[in-house]
């Protein structure tokens, strides 16, 4: 039994790390920002922590904290121009940002180790730290959903015209969501650096971006359970069946197509909706759909 647990600790660690990144992606989408910049913030956080530790010999908590600060700062800096853009334009701008960070990490060889990567980062982060960090962020996301912030994010994402008609200063809320996204990704980037000894610039590129996005799309973009379920499923799948591991990319691709077409709200959100509908139905008062709810 203990053998069993021991074998799965690396997978669990991976799950916790990626869950953090998934939350970063989640909170950006939740606030209605079509951002794919989580990979860039993660890269910034990871390299900040790594460089401060390897080059300056600073203790890892300092480096990780600096990663959070820089991740947040980068997001705040980006949010200004980003608030002028919408939809696919935001997506493209953030992809460009991801590419900028990747190519700078390759170019600034003296600092980052270039294409060879940054090696010899002290391994100071283990499962307990990752668990506390992921649980803390999950709690924060849950708290947001429970207060006015969550309600405001909902209306911004669903309908901007309604949001402003209710007096919501959209730009401010989206900046907030984006800054949280940057801070969380920065934190888990730093944790990843101290969890894996070495960093490699392409690690936080397009492939990373797609994986993180897949977690949130698969799990769901509304409830806190969404990123948790999505990350768990996609991390666990290859472990359950070896053939799935060999075809990991193929499975990701097929899942993305199927989920967005047939379960567009994701596993968790759809399940929650179903449960709620059932509860409402059981409580008696059937919806008064008198056959006239015709959309114009």
């Amino acid at each position: 039994m203990s053998d069993f647990i021991f074998n799965y600790i690396p997978v669990f660690d991976l799950f916790l790390l990626h869950l953090g990144f998934a939350f970063s992606q989640y909170i950006a989408l939740r606030s209605g920002v079509f951002s794919l910049a989580t990979a860039a913030f993660a890269g910034i956080g990871a390299y900040t922590a790594g460089i401060l530790s390897v080059k300056l010999g600073l203790p890892s908590p300092v480096g990780i904290a600096a990663g959070v600060v820089l991740g947040t700062a980068a997001a705040l800096f980006l949010s200004l121009p980003l608030s002028k853009l919408r939809g696919v334009y935001q997506a493209i701008a953030t992809v460009a940002f991801v590419q900028i960070v990747v190519s700078l990490n390759i170019y600034l060889e003296g600092l980052t180790g270039g294409a060879m990567g940054l090696n010899g980062i002290p391994h100071t982060v283990g499962t307990p730290v990752l668990f506390v960090a992921a649980a803390g962020v999950a709690y924060m996301m849950w708290a947001i959903n429970r207060t006015r912030l969550g309600r405001t994010f909902d209306v911004i994402r669903e309908d901007e015209a309604v949001a402003v008609s209710l007096g919501v200063p959209m730009a401010r809320y989206q900046t907030l969501g984006f800054a949280l996204s940057g801070g969380i990704a920065g934190l888990f980037g730093g944790l990843e650096a101290h969890h894996t000894y070495a960093l490699e610039p392409n690690q936080f590129g397009f492939t990373f971006l797609i994986a993180i996005l897949s977690y949130v799309v698969l799990g769901g973009r509304s409830s806190v359970l969404g990123p948790i379920v999505g990350t768990a499923v996609l991390i666990a799948l290859p472990e359950i069946a070896r053939p799935l591991d060999e075809n990991r990319v193929l499975v990701y691709g097929l899942l993305l197509i199927l989920v967005i077409n047939f379960l567009p709200r994701g596993i968790a959100d759809t399940a929650i909706d179903r449960l709620r509908l059932r509860r409402v139905a059981r409580s008696g008062s059937a919806p008064a759909k008198a056959g006239k709810a015709v959309e114009t």
């Binding site: 509908l277 409402v280 409580s283 008062s285 919806p287 759909k289 006239k292 709810a293 015709v294």
Partner: peptide
């Protein structure tokens, strides 16, 4: 009595 119903499930007038 309708508070828990999803808004989309209601009649036009209720919405």
């Amino acid at each position: 009595h309708l508070r828990d119903h999803p808004a989309g499930s209601l009649s036009y007038g209720h919405q």
